[in-house]
Amino acid sequence: MGKVIKKSTKKTSTQLSVRLGTLELANPVITASGTFGYGLEFKAYMNIDNLGAIITKGLSLKPRKGNPGPRIVETPSGMINAIGLANIGVEAFINEKLPLLKKTKTKIIANIFGETVREYSELAKRLSDVEGVSALEINISCPNVKKGGMSFGTDPKEAARVVRAVRKATRLHVMTKLSPNVSDIKQMVRSVESAGTDSVSLINTIPAMAINAETKRPVLGNVMGGLSGPAIKPVALRMVYEAASVATVPLVGIGGITTAVDAIEFILAGASAVQIGTASFITPSASESVVSGLKEYVKKNGDIKKLIGALKV
């Protein structure tokens, strides 16, 4: 009996594994940047070894303090955040978090952002020197920074400049994270692909705002922020679907995923893997539940890889 069970779990695990080009993941479930801290915080609530990969909070060369509050507001089935990319900085990440984090067998992906192309490339170099980081996710799309961020993410040429610089600076897998705030996502995908990205993740949060009619003021300290959560799932699905029509590199779907069924929808639309964001705030172990749900799915239906882009239109 024991043998049979072992065999079937082995089968399940190969049926759940996915490849993003050079990056092999035990399963397609990745935690999204900024929603999973530096990973360690979640050890009290789940087994982080069960994930496909963990993406860190966005890292910059120097620590950043972030925006004045209020930084978040709830909206129908979603939330808007204007955290302002607060983070401990790449050195503190390498010295304080990574030594503990790299003990997990889950792949670690460092999310990076800068205000200049040079900053991106320096971050890429620095993180390539250390052991424990398997890939870099380039955030060219965060809508919260007044300088830099936005222009890289909305202009295909600027985006390509960043990707090219990072590509040159590292031998790690490079994932480029796209902003939904563009009129033609396909052009964006082509542009970052030709600049050498190994995979593309999408979408980042959607620029949004909330107003308090009583006080006649914006709710967020920063006035505008980024919308995330189930509210953005239909937009994200559409963009992954469009991106898949032109992409030659693997796609990673992000936006409002809370269950395994949501994840499967993204995979059908063309994603090879998915990221879980806001859902981790509501249930810290949400990402682990998505893995369990997908495990059940492949037991019944077979290899997850067969689902990628299998949407019947």
């Binding site: 978040i72 939330m79 955040n81 955290i83």
Partner: peptide
């Protein structure tokens, strides 16, 4: 009090000066 999303120190949403 502050607006909170996660309650466990990871979203950085509840920050006060």
């Amino acid at each position: 009090e502050s607006s909170m999303a996660c309650g466990i120190g990871v979203c950085l949403g509840c920050a006060l000066k």
